[in-house]
């Protein structure tokens, strides 16, 4: 277990492996979300009321920050994953650090815009 924690060690690490740690964390977060999501959908098979009960606990304005964080994890994982794919094909090796900053910037832009949309939609 101690070895697993070391995947996420930050001290003494460069930005490259911090990006790697975050990719792993967001991947696991997305996986957990996916499992919950499929669980919720499966509940439909046991009747609409069960599904509605489930949904009413998670879909409400108070949980919106969690949705926003989920979007952050998703955008990070997607953009960073794209960077990893490029790098692992041997492309853009020399500018790998700049690519991390670019992808993080894109993540933040998409995240802020999506959160903005989310809140304006809910307020409306």
């Amino acid at each position: 277990m101690e070895r697993v924690w070391k995947w996420f060690a930050i001290r003494g690490r460069s930005v490259n492996s911090i990006a790697y740690s975050f990719h792993r964390i967001t991947g696991i977060v997305l996986l957990i979300y996916l499992i919950l999501h499929l669980g919720f959908l499966t509940s439909l098979r046991f009747g609409e009321s069960l599904y509605t009960a489930f949904i009413s606990t998670t879909v409400k304005p108070e949980t919106l920050p969690l949705d926003s964080l989920l979007f952050l994890a998703t955008f990070y994982h997607a953009f960073n994953g794209f960077r990893v794919v490029l790098n692992e094909f041997g492309l853009f090796y020399e500018v790998r650090r700049a690519l991390i900053y670019l992808m993080t910037l894109l993540t933040l832009i998409f995240w802020i815009y999506s959160t903005y949309l989310m809140y304006t939609y809910v307020v409306r």
């Binding site: 490259n16 990006a19 692992e88």
Partner: peptide
């Protein structure tokens, strides 16, 4: 097994680029 954390290239005291070599080997 490589996940391209590229920490190897960052820490090499001789400026070798192992992270690049691994990706080229994959190709």
């Amino acid at each position: 097994r490589c996940h391209f954390a590229s920490e190897c290239s960052e820490n090499c005291p001789k400026g070798v680029e192992p992270a690049q070599a691994i990706q080229m080997l994959r190709r």
